[in-house]
Computed example of a mutant assay.
Amino acid sequence: MTPADLSAAIVRILAALQASGRLGAAELPAEVVIERPKNREHGDWATNVAMQLAGKFGMNPRAFAELLAPELEALDGVAKVDIAGPGFINITFSAAAAGEAAKTIVEAGAAFGRGTDMAGIKLNLEFVSANPTGPIHLGGTRWAAVGDSLARVLQAQGADVTREYYFNDHGAQIDRFARSLMASAKGEETPEDGYAGAYIDEIAKRILDETAVDVLGLPEAEAQETFRAAGVALMFQEIRESLHDFGVDFDVYFHENSLYESKAVDRAIARLRELGHIFEADGAIWLRSTTFGDDR
């Protein structure tokens, strides 16, 4: 018996108790919470249904649990039902029932746990989105596992899921990355706010070796832009390959820099200025969020 089966069985028991007059009139839930006990010695599954519903029926939780317990014990596969504390119900299944559940899972194969509850729903799930200023680290890898697992769970229930990686390839951190690469290529010290490490030296060398023009012979601003573009591209490729090797691929890779190249940011600021929603102060552009109910 799966947690969903157990939840449905409890709802049926509640309805039967109402029909027999042993439980008063009140709206029954469509499902109840089934979870693992904190201590597995207390049972296979636990529910706080008595704690949640007793008040609706004018009963104390312990008495409500005592009403449910014999009915639960009568279910096929249930070996024991214990009531703990003020009304928590712990349920233990027989070894045969556990084996039957395992058999059901194995026979269902990849179809086990799938459903259509989210059929027709489209979701955009953005995860990882690490800055392209260095190789992906354990923290980013963890979010890759969590995000992709969530996407798979949603898809298993029929959702149309788009996996998106938002590539933060614009801003101060990218400028520091470019300056770090250029300093390495010149044999200079890493900038105080820059990035250091063997990977910086390796990328800088690749850019020098693989760029057709003499990068260091370009004007400084042009050279820095060359290091930025080439360095980000190399990091982007490495991150994609690392995630692919980890078993995670994305449907969409959105580049933040594209918003600046397309002038979308400039157009947005111009539109907000036109509507009176932004102002300039202290050398910065501010959104007048108080217009929309935000605290100052």
Score class of each variant (00 low, 15 high):
Ala4Cys: 11
Ala15Cys: 02
Ala19Asn: 07
Ala19Phe: 06
Ser20His: 08
Gly21Cys: 01
Arg22His: 06
Leu23Glu: 03
Leu23Asn: 01
Val33Phe: 00
Ile34Pro: 03
Arg36Cys: 04
Arg40Leu: 11
Ala46Asp: 05
Ala46Val: 12
Thr47Met: 10
Val49Pro: 07
Lys56His: 11
Phe57Glu: 05
Arg62Cys: 02
Arg62Gln: 04
Leu67Lys: 05
Leu72Phe: 03
Leu75Gly: 09
Ala79Arg: 15
Ile83Pro: 01
Ala84Asn: 13
Ala84Leu: 02
Gly87Pro: 10
Phe88Ile: 08
Phe88Tyr: 02
Ile89Gln: 00
Ile89Phe: 01
Ile91Phe: 05
Ser94Cys: 05
Ala95Phe: 00
Ala95Gly: 03
Ala96Gln: 15
Gly99His: 11
Ile105Thr: 09
Val106Ser: 04
Val106Lys: 06
Glu107Thr: 13
Gly109His: 07
Ala110Pro: 04
Gly115Leu: 12
Ile121Gly: 06
Leu123Gly: 09
Leu123Lys: 14
Ala130Arg: 04
Ala130His: 07
Gly134Trp: 08
His137Gln: 14
Arg142Thr: 14
Arg142Trp: 08
Trp143Arg: 15
Val146His: 11
Asp148Tyr: 01
Val153Ser: 01
Leu154Cys: 08
Gln155Leu: 07
Ala159Gly: 08
Asp160Pro: 04
Asp160Arg: 15
Thr162Tyr: 09
Arg163Ile: 04
Arg163Ser: 12
Glu164Asp: 14
Asn168Ile: 14
Asp169Pro: 03
His170Ala: 15
Gln173Ile: 02
Ile174Pro: 00
Asp175Val: 14
Asp175Lys: 14
Ser180Asn: 08
Ala183Asn: 06
Ala185Arg: 15
Tyr199Ser: 01
Tyr199Trp: 08
Ile200Asp: 03
Arg206Ile: 00
Asp209Asn: 08
Glu210Gln: 07
Glu210Lys: 06
Glu210His: 02
Thr211Ser: 10
Val213Arg: 03
Gly217Thr: 08
Pro219Phe: 09
Glu220His: 04
Gln224Gly: 14
Ala229Ser: 07
Gly231Met: 02
Gln237Ile: 00
Gln237Leu: 10
Gln237Glu: 13
Ile239His: 12
Arg240His: 10
Leu259Gln: 02
Glu261Gln: 14
Val265Gly: 07
Val265Ala: 07
Asp266Tyr: 12
Ala268Ile: 12
His277Asp: 10
His277Pro: 05
Phe279Glu: 15
Ile285Met: 08
Trp286Arg: 15
Arg296Asn: 09
